[in-house]
């Protein structure tokens, strides 16, 4: 079947089997490997992308469901040179170790800051609480998001 959607600013028309998930489409068809897979059941958040600005689990959506959607992956967030301020905050504040959950965490943080430019610590924890990291114990991630919040005024 045919799916037309925008991925990282580029509008694409793709022919895919109906059983293709958004995750499959991104990883296998578009080779956008920054979106990761672990639990494949909407729990862990490794496959988090933004669809029309909202954080979603790309493993739990069929390609047909994103017809016409505007999808942002970690590749689309990353500028041509350097890093997005949220990415830089994760680097500077040791918000990552193995890096596997990191793209999903960064995109979730992006969705949070787009919705709520000045979240409190409690709001950050409540919002980010769904994404799993096995390495950092989350302290570095919280520090990173808080640092990104502080810098929020300086980027659009």
């Amino acid at each position: 079947m045919n799916v037309t959607l925008t991925v990282n600013g580029e509008t694409l028309s793709l022919d895919v089997p109906p059983s293709t998930t958004l995750l499959d489409l991104l990883r296998d068809r578009l080779s956008l490997h920054g979106t990761k897979e672990y639990c494949h059941s909407g729990v862990c958040g490794a496959c988090t992308v933004l669809a029309d600005g909202k954080a979603v689990s790309s493993c739990s959506m069929l390609a047909g469901q994103v017809e016409g959607a505007d999808v942002l992956t970690i590749e689309g967030l990353t500028p041509d040179e350097g890093l997005h301020p949220i990415q830089q905050a994760f680097v500077d504040n040791f918000g990552l170790q193995c890096g596997y959950c990191t793209p999903g965490m960064i995109l979730l943080a992006k969705a949070l800051l787009d919705e709520n430019p000045a979240p409190t610590r409690e709001e950050i924890i409540r919002y980010m609480g769904g994404n799993i990291c096995r390495c950092t114990g989350y302290a570095g991630i919280l520090r990173s998001v808080e640092a990104a919040v502080k810098e929020r005024g300086s980027w659009s």
Partner: peptide, 11 residues
């Protein structure tokens, strides 16, 4: 930060 941290943050 780890040497590969920027690449990890960029996916």
């Amino acid at each position: 930060p780890s040497l590969e941290a920027p690449d990890k943050a960029a996916g």
